[in-house]
């Protein structure tokens, strides 16, 4: 079980794996995530379901190597099996036919989780306007799939190496200035700071916006409270009450502080693992 059926490298730090997980594939819906453990000593890491196929029994994940666990995952090969893989977790996106346009914003690795939402919204008959962005051209992923899932696709890079130079929020602001009325709902997924900025723009235009909160998690089923976030002044568990919330109500600053909770330990773990991988490489 949980065999890596296929693995692709999309950039220096971004990979995609297709995992054999028939029960998860059968139940998966847009907006939901899984938790996996690479090996017996691994930690539980949450990753969004980028795509799934109930008939063939696989789930696709897209991940960026940011620390020890994602590095560990990236060095596993096709044919290897993960120690654990559980899902689908969280509440699915509230998608329906809104009878108009929807605005979809994906930043960096956030393009992967936003893709199934865009796809579903289009299937349901919405006119999907998408904006994807990243620091630089190499980090723009899934462009073709996003084009397919959208009626209109805009691209932004911070350094201007591809698409429009600047942030996704610039394009978002332009669109809302022109057709705020026509936009029925908005989704934004990406780094917390991007989601915070998108929410600010949405607020300026008096629009509601969905964001997907990637808080630190352990069990992912509402048992531990590690993932708690303040939404509308109340404490919510991102894993069971979310991960999607109305950004307008989210306390992003608290969430960003909470994400840094284990910085020191994470750095230590990453260094040790890098050292181990280097040793293995030089031995074999």
């Amino acid at each position: 079980m949980y065999k890596i059926l296929k693995k692709q490298k999309w950039s220096d730090t971004i990979y995609s794996n297709w995992i054999e997980a028939p029960f998860v594939a059968k139940a998966a819906q847009p907006g939901q995530f899984i938790i996996l453990i690479t090996n017996q000593k691994g930690e539980r890491i949450p990753l969004t379901i980028a795509d799934s196929n109930a008939k063939e029994g696989w789930v696709q994940i897209v991940y960026q190597v940011v620390g020890a666990s994602t590095l560990e995952l990236s060095v596993m090969n096709e044919g290897d099996s993960l120690y654990a893989f559980v899902g689908p977790l969280g509440i699915p996106s509230e998608v329906e036919n809104f009878g108009g346009k929807v605005l979809i914003i994906g930043g960096g690795i956030g393009i992967a989780p936003i893709h199934p939402i865009a796809k579903k919204l289009k299937e349901l008959g919405n006119y999907v306007v998408s904006i994807i962005g990243a620091r630089t051209k190499d980090l723009i992923i899934m462009e073709d799939k996003m084009r397919e899932a959208s009626n209109e696709l805009h691209i932004a890079t911070d350094d201007g190496t591809y698409g429009q130079k600047g942030f996704v929020t610039n394009i978002m602001d332009d669109i809302l200035k022109k057709e705020s009325e026509a936009i029925k709902d908005i989704w934004a997924i990406g780094p917390p700071i991007m989601m915070k900025m998108c929410t600010r723009v949405a607020n300026e235009h008096n629009k509601q916006i969905w964001v997907s909160l990637n808080s630190i998690m352990v069990d992912g089923t509402g048992m531990c409270g590690a993932c708690r976030v303040s939404v509308g002044g109340k404490t919510k568990f991102a894993c069971v009450d979310g991960p999607e919330f109305r950004g307008n109500l989210v306390n992003f600053d608290e969430m960003m502080l909470r994400q840094k909770q284990y910085c020191d330990q994470e750095r230590e773990a990453l260094m040790l693992l890098e050292e181990k991988i280097r040793r293995q490489a030089s031995n074999g």
Partner: peptide, 8 residues
Amino acid sequence: PNYATPIR
């Protein structure tokens, strides 16, 4: 760090 989950 022998097991990957941190605690403080």
